[in-house]
């Protein structure tokens, strides 16, 4: 059942500012069909005053996605670009009288569209379009990067992985990125606690969220992880297998899942699965990390 506020229903059943401005001053496309919601936002902005004169949207999505888009256009019309820039996803949700926790990502989509449209207007380099921004891709199912996750964690003071899913969908698919997201939450929460202690949780610090990875060398980047896996296979695992007339090929690394293919004598060996579990996986766990696991590809 839908626990929507009257305001959400009002904007869903009778959305404001539907459509598309021809020759817009700014536009943004965010979200995607695969994720189940997408928003196309166009703005008309007076170049002298920087006031947003008109805003229109088209939206593919559920009730709250349409309502979030509709109220966003209401919120920004008449505001200057600088004022609009200050709107956060929480402001959008608040304006709707609140959204169910699982639907918070709808407000985040509105925020992202606005951010992107303003950047487009100011001629800035596209900010993180959050489907393929500069950060490292953490959730491959929904194309969410560490930068996006760190931002929603910080802006909404998130402590649980489930809430990261509610706000930006990460971990909502195959779930293999769960541990990485847990690490980001820990990292950002630690930063925020530190800032609080120092009493300088000012916007200056907020704007410069350090990449969780750079500050925490113990967490390997994907690239480091793959290299380490390759090295381990090369120097520790392959020689033993080759001595038995077999071989191993690294196919891919997906999150903590290492996909390998056994070759030669190994591929037909009846104890191949034991080799994988007790030999290959045990060694990789030891060297690369406890949460790694190995799957055989045929």
């Amino acid at each position: 059942m839908w626990e929507y506020t009257e305001k959400v229903k009002e904007h869903f059943f009778n959305p404001h500012n539907v459509g598309e401005i021809k020759n817009p001053s700014a536009k943004a496309e965010v979200g995607s069909l695969s994720c189940g919601d997408a928003l196309y936002l166009t703005l008309k902005i007076d170049e002298k005053t920087n006031i947003i004169q008109d805003a229109k949207f088209m939206s593919f999505g559920c009730g709250s996605a349409i309502a979030s888009s509709s109220i966003l256009t209401d919120m920004i019309i008449g505001k200057t670009v600088d004022e609009a820039k200050k709107i956060t996803n929480q402001d959008i949700a608040d304006e709707l009288g609140g959204l169910p926790r699982q639907k918070m990502h709808c407000s985040v989509m509105g925020y992202e569209a606005l951010e992107k449209a303003i950047a487009n207007y100011l001629g800035e380099q596209e900010p993180e379009e959050h489907t393929h921004d500069e950060g490292e891709l953490i959730c491959t199912c929904f194309q969410v990067t560490d930068a996006t996750i760190a931002r929603v964690v910080r802006e909404n003071n998130i402590t649980e992985v489930e809430d990261v899913t509610n706000f930006c969908k990460a971990v909502g698919g195959c779930g293999t990125c769960r541990t990485e997201v847990e690490d980001i939450i820990k990292q950002v929460q630690a930063e925020m606690a530190l800032e609080k202690q120092q009493g300088n949780g000012s916007s200056a610090t907020v704007a410069n969220i350090p990449s969780p990875r750079l500050e925490k060398p113990k967490v390997l980047t994907n690239l480091q992880k793959i290299k380490l896996i390759e090295e381990t296979i090369e120097s520790d695992i392959r020689p033993g297998l080759m001595a038995d007339g077999g071989n191993i090929e690294l196919i891919d690394v997906v999150g903590n899942q290492i996909l390998v293919k056994l070759q030669g004598a190994c591929s037909s060996c009846p104890s191949a699965s034991a080799t994988i579990k007790h030999g290959v996986e045990a060694r990789l766990k030891e060297i690369v990390g406890d949460d790694m696991f190995v799957e055989e590809v045929h």
Binding site: P15, V18, E29, L33, A38, L39, Y40, M58, S59, F60, I66
Partner: peptide
């Protein structure tokens, strides 16, 4: 569909 950005619009995005 009249609200959908993917419906009947010439659409590189889609």
């Amino acid at each position: 569909r009249s609200i959908s950005p993917f419906w009947r619009r010439e659409n590189a995005w889609l």
